[in-house]
């Protein structure tokens, strides 16, 4: 396994380009690359289509933006907007995630072992996102497809203006957002959760969760009065 040690020179100018190039070069010949000392760097491991990137320690904002097939493992905390606009692949954060984790994702898996800030999974269009601890306000705002699974508590306005997709919460929430409703878990939901928990070794049972879905798929101007 090759290691990219982000140098002091890289960090002085936050030279994303040089770090990205190093990662890409290593992934051309190796399956895995480890990156260290990048806690101030934004946008690392963006736009990758294959390979596995292990980031030692914490990292800045926009990690794995437009990820299109790579597996990213971050061993510390991440800044804002992790996995922004992900298409496919996996991102696993062993620490906490800041504001607006996994926005605009079309697909892929995001797992956050710690807590996450407000606006988790905003405008999710197909990714499956799991957070093991608490999430902030506005979880799943304007979500159009995909799944958000929260093992502990959420804040205000859960699923605000949800259009489609599913939100599963095991803990409590302060308030639900507009255009949401609670529905019993179907057999499909239970199968999906069981498979997901088994794949990612999550200790949880589907029946412990509440499912939140959209009340209508037309909450805006086209709403039938």
């Amino acid at each position: 396994m090759d290691v990219v040690a982000v140098s002091a020179t890289d960090l002085i100018g936050l030279k994303l380009k040089s770090v990205s190039q190093k990662i890409k070069n290593i992934l051309e010949e190796n399956e895995t690359v480890t990156v260290t000392n990048c806690d101030l760097l934004n946008g690392i491991a963006s736009g990758l289509m294959r390979g596995e990137v292990i980031i030692k320690g914490s990292v800045g904002n926009y990690v794995g933006m437009l990820n299109s097939g790579a597996k990213l493992i971050i061993e510390g905390n991440v800044g804002k907007y992790i996995g922004d606009n992900m298409i496919k692949g996996e991102i696993i954060v062993k620490g906490n995630a800041d504001y607006c984790a996994a926005p605009y994702c079309y697909g892929g898996i995001v797992i956050i072992k710690g807590t996450c800030g407000d606006f988790l999974g905003t405008m999710n269009k197909g990714a499956s996102i799991l957070v093991e601890k608490d999430a902030g306000n506005d979880l799943g705002t304007y979500m159009l497809a995909g799944n958000i699974i929260l093992l502990r508590n959420a804040g205000e306005r859960v699923g605000n203006y949800l259009i489609s997709g599913r939100i599963f919460i095991r803990g409590k929430w302060k308030s639900l957002g507009n255009n949401t409703k609670i529905e019993d878990l179907s057999s499909d939901d239970i199968y999906f959760l069981q498979k997901f928990f088994s794949t990612y070794k999550i200790e949880a049972k589907p029946e412990e969760f509440t499912k939140i879905i959209a009340d209508t798929d037309k909450p805006f101007y086209s709403k039938k009065s």
Binding site: K80, P103, A145, I163, S164, D217, F220, S222
Partner: peptide, 18 residues
């Protein structure tokens, strides 16, 4: 990448750039 027949209302600001 959205469901058929739903209003596609882009937000007024970037959620991922505040």
């Amino acid at each position: 990448g959205i469901p058929i027949g739903t209003d596609a209302l882009s937000p007024p600001r970037y959620y991922d750039a505040i």
